[in-house]
Design a protein around this nucleic acid. Structure first.
Lengths: 212, 212
DNA sequence: AATAAAATCACCAGTTCATGTGATTGCCGA
DNA sequence: TCGGCAATCACATGAACTGGTGATTTTATT
């Protein structure tokens, strides 16, 4: 059975040469090459690939967004990211979105083909520099991903942060130059938004939800 | 400049063949092959390697321990783990100890040499199955490492956990079938041990220190 | 057996919190 | 320009918490 590969790459030249490269390899076919991820679902159904090579930087729908969508709609498809950048944020986002591999574009054609094959087999090929960053992030327990502040106002976020630091209403009032009653009112609103009824619940929720 | 490689591998046969393999490669020398990590520092000084290949399972000092020591005393040395197992715990421990790469022993000689070279260049070669596990763990934010409970008694831990869940003294008292005064006493002791003075501080500390 | 923790309970005074009700001001979008 | 929201303040009450003192019983540890 041939490995069916779909390409998403906005650089026309690179896109073409990758397509040729893939088609030149025994046991591999490029069933679709697209310059953007706009008609993603449609194109995915057309190409029906086993492996997707996704450029991370594309006009319109970003590669990261596309990965999320693909993983949602076609969970069995393995995705190999390719990019010229290897910054932590992008890597992190791609991995979390569900990408299996992450190769820099400067990778040699042979290595790229090998990576596609490895991706198809359920592996996680990574350019050395990326692998290192992943391990680093892993070690550092990168818990950077924060779900946005539920919908607290700036003042509320500020006060919630102070609650987490263990400050009392009185301390907050004096630090913020507002009255203790105002603090109380803000806290009341925070409780409503977080659906809690005590300082410690709010603190726990704030921390777990990474609201601070 | 030749890449100097030191081996730590208790399987004599494998150790010998690896040594031969390394020495047969252009630009690579095995400057030491040891069956265990007992005289680690001494042997490391003898071999003065750029890259260490470390078996994870050795009699005496474990490979993981050895990695820690090496990273401490010789921080510039890159370490490539090798093992027959690829269970999550071992991988996790090895990475956290500071290993750069992680290869299964069944890896082909060519791949192994390539991995050594990649390790030397500061990369992080991983057997596909390992790479996948690392990414999985990464995604799951494996925060398995728990620093032991500072020194709280069982009861105190139990009550602290309930505080984190936002329970009131009254609720804790009734759930634990003890009086509210007892709860108060326990909480007082918890505060003393954690050096805090309020419920929310205790909760925040408990969460951040992963005491729960 | 003796000493040291841990767990239990009690009483109490002062502080802080949770929550209800109500009000004023300023800003922004419809 | 009107309505809504954020931010501010006030008053009030009952509940919850903090911390001090003191005591008994069980469980470890030496």
């Amino acid at each position: 059975m041939e490995i069916k590969v779909a390409l998403f790459e906005d650089n026309k030249k690179l896109c073409d040469s990758l397509e040729q490269l893939i088609n030149s390899v025994e046991g591999m076919t490029c069933t679709g090459a697209f310059a953007n991820a706009n008609k993603l679902i449609h194109n995915m159904q057309l190409a029906n690939p086993d492996v997707v090579m996704m450029d991370i930087n594309m006009p319109g729908v970003s590669g990261i967004e596309a990965v999320k969508t693909i993983k949602e709609k076609f969970p069995n498809v393995h995705i190999l990211m390719q990019t010229v950048f290897d910054d932590n944020d992008k890597i992190f986002a791609a991995i979390c979105a569900g990408a299996s591999g992450y190769m820099l574009k400067k990778t040699s054609p042979q290595k790229m083909i090998e990576a596609i094959r490895e991706t198809y087999q359920g592996g996680a090929p990574m350019t050395p520099s990326v692998a290192v960053k992943v391990l680093e992030m892993f070690r550092l327990q990168t818990r950077v991903e924060k779900n946005e502040f539920i919908d607290l106002s700036e003042r509320e976020k500020e006060i919630l942060a102070m609650l987490v630091k263990g400050k009392s209403y009185k301390a907050i009032a004096s630090e913020c130059f507002i009255s203790i009653d105002t603090v109380s009112t803000h806290v009341r609103h925070i409780y409503e938004k977080l659906h809690v009824h005590s300082k410690s619940e709010a603190v726990a929720k704030a921390i777990f939800q990474k609201l601070v």
